[in-house]
């Protein structure tokens, strides 16, 4: 079953066609990477999926339900989570409270259970020893991990991550790959990522966007060999 689908999704920003008739299907349980050159429309696409932007035309389906008209918070309520490209946390609140805000909204539970779930989410990203620290005081890398922990706390069925490894150190990226693999089977993941190492290691399938349209789709090895993709990235294919 497809967890997420879009049909003819288009987005027009004051004359600039950011997305054009995108038909996209993401089956349940997959880790899908969304790649493409800068300005290809990746962030616009996921923004339109989770309701941050209102598309100019087209439909979005989540579990076969048409959610095109729902505001962002209702879509999140259906079981989506979105982690921001630019670190987006509640700076003056504690690390604990940041994740608790995510957990409380997503699950109706007793106080003790919420504490437990917050700790679980923080444990998975390795921030358990910093629960009482002010989120704004964390290092950049830790803030990115907190952002992921907030998403985990929501226990989403679809987890959209917008460049989660941007600005992370090499060791942190390795840990992130581990984390992502651990999530496989638990949650469906839509990942925007520039780091090809992360993409090739984690993704089951890749979708390549270019000029707001889907250029190619397939398993990592297929995409790597696709001359159109090479052309989009490098201006010419490697074997040309």
């Amino acid at each position: 079953m497809n967890l997420l689908s879009t049909r003819k999704l288009s987005m027009n920003f004051g004359g600039v066609q950011a997305l054009l008739d995108v038909d996209f299907d993401l089956p349940q349980g997959q880790i899908r990477a969304l790649i493409g050159p800068n300005g290809a429309g990746k962030s616009t696409f996921v923004g339109a999926v989770c309701g941050r932007f209102r598309p100019s035309a087209g439909r979005v389906y989540f579990e076969d339900q048409d959610i095109s008209q729902l505001p962002a918070h209702r879509r999140i309520g259906l079981g989506m989570a979105y982690s921001f490209q630019i670190t987006s946390i509640f700076g003056s609140l504690t690390v604990y409270e940041n994740v608790a805000l995510a957990v409380r909204r997503a699950v109706q539970a007793q106080a003790e259970e919420i504490v437990e779930r917050v700790h679980m989410a923080l444990d998975r990203v390795g921030l358990l020893d910093r629960v009482e620290q002010k989120a704004g005081d964390l290092s950049y890398g830790h803030q990115r991990l907190l952002e992921i922990a907030m998403g985990l706390g929501q226990e989403p069925r679809l987890f959209i991550m917008d460049e989660p490894t941007q600005g992370l150190a090499a060791s942190e990226i390795t840990a992130f790959i581990e984390l992502l693999r651990g999530l496989a089977g638990e949650s469906t993941i839509l990942l925007i990522e520039h780091n090809m190492h992360v993409v090739m290691e984690c993704a089951d399938t890749l979708t390549v966007l270019n000029f707001g349209q889907i250029l190619a789709e397939g398993v990592p090895s297929e995409i790597r060999a696709d001359s159109r993709v090479q052309h989009a990235y490098f201006g010419s294919s490697i074997d040309a």
Binding site: H73, G77, S88, F90
Partner: peptide, 10 residues
């Protein structure tokens, strides 16, 4: 603290 984040937490 962050209106957009609050919204994207649902």
């Amino acid at each position: 603290e962050n209106e957009e984040r609050a919204q994207m937490l649902g």
